[in-house]
Design a binder for these strands. Structure first.
Lengths: 147, 147
DNA sequence: TTTACTTAGTTGCATAAACAACTGTATGTC
DNA sequence: GACATACAGTTGTTTATGCAACTAAGTAAA
């Protein structure tokens, strides 16, 4: 059985993920026009902290699929924006726990609404079962390459 | 009818496109271990030129979904690597036509093989009809946001 | 307790993206 | 020809990524 799913011309767009790039750009535009002063990358870190405030930088690496230097600098920038604070763990002083500020907590509702709005626009006209299957395929791709 | 396809926890990975990021990283690793001295972004420009040698920078913008400054700098770097040459169009001197060098032409076969290999690994165990549907959904998403 | 190893995070460097402001060239209208 | 306008490409700034090399702190074995 052939594993060769790709005609030549389609290969590039699958690798570059133009759909997810389009989604991210659309969400960024919504942030900008709504006066939300955040990059998508900064938002993706806040997103994890809204789920688990006080996560370590290493935990943020795992959750956002980034390496440690990336998280160091994203946290740097979020600190400059007064959205998070680094707090050194008392038991293990290597670890920084990252805590949301009041301002960051306030951003959750608005930005999550913009994110859901963006996804609904992106998936408009796509039947729910196809969305479901697409998510499964993409998860499988991820697992194939990281398992 | 509700358009609300997303449970909270799934939203983030759809926006970040972790599957396509994983594919790009895997391909980059294959380049590195095969001694191919190219970034994925540089490769994506060469990919277009292999299909249409002599394309203008603007055409490369459209084909790779990048803005003009991004292409300017990618072409800068490809020129430094002696993989392309800028040639000013005789009829319209605003336009740079980008031509592949011998070295770049030589890279096509090897890197395309690595790209196909990567995609086959990524899609291993995914039925062809699901891949097809997934491609359609992602194309629809792109069209929804850029139409 | 000294040594080796591991883990968490940081720093330096090269590459890339987004946006705005810019130069230079072509085109169309008066 | 002189003007405005549109288009192709470049440059500057900020932010982000990937990799390698590094520091600091904890752990475990001699």
């Amino acid at each position: 059985m052939s594993n060769n799913h790709f005609k030549k011309g389609e290969l590039y767009s699958f690798i570059t993920g133009k759909a997810s790039i389009a989604i991210a750009r659309r969400l960024q535009k919504k942030f900008n026009t709504s006066g939300v002063n955040l990059t998508i990358e900064q938002w993706s870190v806040l997103y994890q902290l809204w789920k688990h405030d006080g996560a370590s930088q290493q935990e943020l690496c795992n959750a956002t699929f980034r390496d440690k230097p990336s998280i160091t600098r994203l946290v740097d920038n979020l600190e400059k924006l007064n959205l998070v604070n680094r707090v050194s763990d008392e038991k293990d002083r290597r670890i920084n726990k990252i805590y949301l500020t009041r301002a960051a907590i306030k951003l959750q509702e608005e930005t999550m609404a913009l994110a859901e709005e963006t996804l609904n626009e992106a998936l408009s006209g796509v039947p729910a079962d196809q969305v479901e299957m697409c998510k499964e395929v993409l998860q499988k791709v991820y697992d194939n390459l990281n398992g």
